[in-house]
Simulated assay, not measured.
Amino acid sequence: MEVSKLLQKAKKGDDEAFYELMQIHKIRLLKVSYSYLRNEADALEALQEVTFRAYRSIKKVKEPEYFSTWLIRIMLNYCHDQSRRKKRIADTDLLDSLAETIDHSQSIEIQEALQKIDSRCREVIILKYYHDLRIKDIAEILERPESTIKTWLYKGLKALRNQMEDRSGLNV
């Protein structure tokens, strides 16, 4: 069934429709939560909490085409809360996709370099390259203009490149 029809049913209290919506988005939400929380158990707990929060406030979704963005925003907010609470730094699983041909030690260097860049830039890089989100989608999720997202992406990639060059002379 189409997401917009499922959303309409879920907003009217249809639990089955809500369950189907969550099944459609479950994998993407788990990937987002795991990339931030760096722990499978924490990622599953995040999915459970986000499911509860989404269920509780499903009626707030105005446009069906933004349902996915709305869910990701809830997940990001939850992950940020957890990171602040536990003083964690967002994960950089992006590196696995960026560095398939780079050996393990270089991958660790990239992860460490990514941890040292500005958190806003790191978040945009993760959303763009690991989660394959478009600039427009990232802008909606982070509630910022597209131009700001592009700036953060540019600055983040430049900072990551500089970190890598400083660390090992690797040209990224």
Rank of each mutant, 00 (worst) to 15 (best):
L6Y: 08
I58C: 11
N39L: 08
L7N: 08
A90K: 12
P64A: 03
L98G: 06
I117A: 09
D93V: 09
F52L: 14
L153F: 05
I58K: 14
Y130F: 13
I89P: 00
A43L: 04
Q115P: 00
I89R: 12
Q115S: 11
D42F: 01
N162C: 05
I141S: 10
L94F: 12
Y154T: 03
D15S: 15
K60V: 08
L37N: 05
D132Y: 06
K59R: 15
V172I: 15
I125H: 00
A46Q: 05
S105D: 14
K155D: 08
F18I: 10
V124N: 03
G13L: 05
H104I: 15
L94V: 15
Y55F: 07
D91R: 04
K31G: 12
E2C: 07
P145I: 12
E40I: 07
S33G: 03
Y34C: 04
Y36I: 06
G13K: 03
K5L: 07
E49I: 03
L76T: 04
R85V: 07
R84N: 15
G13A: 04
I27R: 14
N77H: 02
I24V: 14
I149P: 01
E143G: 01
K60Q: 12
F52S: 05
R84G: 03
E49A: 02
E112T: 08
K87G: 02
I58H: 03
K31A: 11
A10G: 02
H25S: 07
T51L: 03
E49F: 00
Y19I: 12
D166E: 15
E123A: 02
L98V: 10
K11C: 01
K31T: 10
R161M: 07
D15P: 01
I125P: 00
K150C: 06
T51P: 00
